[in-house]
Design a protein around this nucleic acid. Structure first.
Lengths: 340, 340
DNA sequence: GACAGCCATGTTTGCGTTCACATTCTGGCC
DNA sequence: GGCCAGAATGTGAACGCAAACATGGCTGTC
């Protein structure tokens, strides 16, 4: 019943070897599942490991191999739903494959901050690096990284030649816009995200493309900043234009603010105005009315990212230029109706 | 102008020492800012470091010192606003003090999962551990941790004897309830979070305490699960009771669902029913109507946690029993009115 | 002028692991 | 019976760093 309090250094390979009556090298072989170890000694070593409660020291292994089982992630320290979900999805995926995740939050995604964060990670001898870089300012920093470290960018610059995984913003926005057009709306307005975000730019392009394909004139673009506040402010404007009957917002929170503005001006949703958002935040189903929106598959992005990264880690080469695009899904709810 | 591509092992102390014409130990002394190094050699070494682009190898340092500059965080892999905000706040705080943060997400906070996550961290020789453990099920796991590793729990069991930092749920809930009573409401209802969460339990206690102090009878407790959906479902019920004029919800998303239920039943907020939420999610200011709510100070919690943890790390002892409670703030918006 | 004391620096050792190489043992074949 | 292949195991070094100990030079004191 007595639990011995561990004092001093934990047991090392040598201790295990001594107890099992073998050399430390044999212990190492058992640990790394080398062949050419007899079943008998394997069992002896396993028993000794269990008895001592031995756990291999990753630091020592990292020292000699020059690498670790840790993946460094650089992400902006924001509580924006998209990036935050991306991060947790990736953590979960990485853990399932036995990699630890080291998060280097960064206050803003400018070159200096990213470079610093990356260098902190390199100090730790990370095996690979993931940068969640949804804004243009991150570009220069990524261009100057050492080429020999495995790196995958999420939501980065589609024009850059790095390994990249993205949500297909254009397709999502197009689907949303088309959905509104198909419902019979003559025009679809758009409140966008900040223009330096690739996500925002992609959603704008998809919106424009859908309108163009339908031969519909493109209304003036309204610019938001992902926040509900920006949806509200732009909504004040839209609410006064009686010919506005359909709006695609760059995310759900903008839609929420828009909803409030329309409500204050007595315009009904979806009776007078139809709305589609983007992200499918968990509470979107409980907006008033429940919001039709576009849902990105964060888990799929995370899985693809990890797969590409592990390929690079194992091959030792950084296969620059690989792309992976994940298509989002339109979620139908009650914020869209046929115009009167 | 030529940038040499780094190949093979990066430069080590030896390389720096050779270039500076000193011994590697002197380099070490400069790095660790030891005294007894002449200004002259200090400069020489610094120059050599800069020229080679030398960066100390943390793995090697960890090996020899037996510890690292990494803090392990165990957190549930959820996108719930509270825990997620807590996590990012802590990451930011830790980074400011030069600690790296290793996140061990965990799917659920049962004993097994936590123990596993903790052991993964211990493998990495983390300097300290933070567990964000807002649910009762985490208790047993925390009780069986090795006592010699610095550990701080956030939002853990108030009854346990570990070092603990919490938001003062009781005070926040009390303030909200009192605010509604002071506005003239005869009764205040509550839609709670899941009963196994300490946060939820604390908010229930605060609500009850405020009612008791005011000599008001305590209405039946409605139980939610933090989600907007649970707010909506409970709202269906409340909306049909004409004497319900004030509701305190355990978080903002529950309030959002409640808002929709009330709206569907034609009950105006705040005209017919007043509501106060908890969390102050960024979009709460743009609910319809803007939500009066209670804002926990995540940054303060993170700072307190880090401070306690660093104290333990530096002293080597785990000063069990220290507590820190952070008071939240009531944010007044438009979802509360005097009853008719 | 000898000796203590301090300062700046160098030398050695070892952290726990893997890798490259060495050694021993086993069995099959002529 | 001798020899060789290959399997099983062992030995020694190296990884990059910090701590303990060792050295040499300078200053001040009597």
């Amino acid at each position: 019943m007595s639990v011995s309090v561990k004092r001093g250094r934990p047991p090392g390979m040598m201790d295990v070897a001594r107890l099992a009556g073998v050399s430390h090298q044999t212990v190492s072989r058992v640990l790394n599942e080398h062949k050419n170890v007899s079943e008998q000694t394997r069992l002896k070593v396993r028993a000794a490991i269990a008895e001592l409660g031995y756990r291999p020291d990753r630091a020592a292994r990292a020292l000699v191999t020059g690498t670790s089982q840790v993946i460094g992630v650089v992400a902006q320290n924001s509580s924006l739903y998209g990036p935050a979900s991306m991060l947790t999805a990736f953590e979960e995926a990485a853990q399932a494959t036995g990699f630890a995740v080291n998060v280097g939050s960064v206050r803003s995604l400018d070159e200096r901050s990213i470079t610093e964060a990356v260098e902190r990670h390199l100090d730790q001898r990370v095996a690979g690096l993931v940068v969640i870089a949804p804004v243009a300012s991150a570009g220069p920093a990524l261009a100057h990284l050492p080429a020999d470290v495995p790196l995958v960018t999420i939501d980065g610059d589609p024009e850059r030649s790095s390994t990249l995984v993205t949500v297909d913003q254009v397709a999502g926005a197009k689907a949303a816009t088309k959905y509104l057009l198909d419902a019979g709306h003559q025009a679809v307005w758009h409140i966008s995200g900040p223009s330096d975000w690739f996500d925002a730019a992609g959603r704008i392009r998809g919106w424009e493309a859908a309108l163009k394909e339908a031969g519909v004139e493109i209304p003036p673009l309204l610019t938001g900043d992902w926040s509900a506040g920006s949806g509200y402010r732009n909504g004040q404007l839209l609410a006064r234009l009686p010919d506005v009957t359909a709006v695609f917002t760059a995310n759900d929170h903008i839609a929420l603010g828009l909803l409030r503005a329309l409500n204050e001006h007595g315009r009904k949703v979806p009776g007078d105005v139809s709305i589609i958002g983007f992200d499918d935040v968990p509470e979107a189903a409980y907006f008033t009315p429940p919001l039709t929106t576009v849902r990105p598959d964060f888990a799929a992005v995370a899985a693809a990212t990890l797969e590409l990264l592990i390929t690079q880690i194992e091959s030792g080469t950084s296969e620059i230029g690989t792309r992976r695009t994940i298509a989002p899904t339109l979620i139908e709810r009650d914020s869209v109706a046929r115009p009167a």
